[in-house]
Simulated assay, not measured.
Amino acid sequence: MQETVKLLRDCPAMLIPSGLKVTLARGNELLVTHTLGGKFTVRGIFGIARIDDENADALGLAPLSASAGAVGKPENVSEPLSKTPGDSSAASGQCALASAAQEIPQATLDDLWNTAKTVFDPEIPVNIVDLGLVYRMEILKTPEGKNRVEVDMTLTAPGCSMGPAIANDLKLRLEALPSISEAAVNIVWDPPWNTDMMTMEARMILGME
């Protein structure tokens, strides 16, 4: 996505790669370079910045979350039968539904990796998994019996100042998963990252194939 827009109101943003939080003034002309990871990455006279989806209106654009659309009622699903007094089958059915509603779905390793694929380095239009930045993801039990996620990831270069912001973005997204009580994202440097760790899809996106 490459689109030039003019800010319709003052808008909070985060400068890349410094991570400095600023307010961009109304009337600023920006180039929206991509909308990956649920955020808008823009260029202006200040350089590169990232704008959260909740401020899409300032750009005059629809929220990225709206692209999912409204979820309607699935087809071929029958309406529940009316319950009549003394209908034990209806009562037991309601108990089963109530019990199921109380159960919390358990996040799986696939859920963790799929969530990590929604995290992007603002300067690179490829998610951190396809870039080969995530080395390990594991679900561990805490002494209290809760689920804790531990992640080892690296950066494309030790001097990347966006590292803490990327790690925190991943942490917050993992902790939003059902049954995950906390997540720890560790930035490691062994083994050192190199372009051979990228997937073929990532290499094609970046014009390396």
Score class of each variant (00 low, 15 high):
N194M: 11
A116N: 09
E103M: 03
G86E: 01
D10Q: 14
T118I: 11
R43G: 07
I166D: 03
I124K: 04
I166T: 05
L206F: 09
G93S: 12
T23G: 11
V22W: 00
I48G: 02
G159E: 08
V77G: 00
N194W: 02
A70E: 03
P125E: 05
G163H: 00
A49P: 08
H34C: 04
M204K: 07
P122I: 07
D110W: 02
I104L: 05
A62I: 11
I16Y: 04
T23Y: 12
G145L: 12
P17E: 02
D52T: 06
M208S: 04
I139N: 08
A90G: 14
E150F: 13
E175T: 08
L109G: 02
S99N: 03
S78D: 05
C11N: 15
Q94R: 14
I104P: 00
L81D: 04
P191S: 01
G163T: 00
A91C: 00
N168K: 14
A62F: 14
T35V: 07
R173Y: 00
N194C: 08
I205R: 12
P12N: 08
E182T: 15
P178T: 02
D110E: 13
R148E: 10
I187Q: 05
G72M: 02
D130L: 09
A56P: 14
I180G: 08
M197H: 12
T156M: 04
L172A: 01
N194D: 15
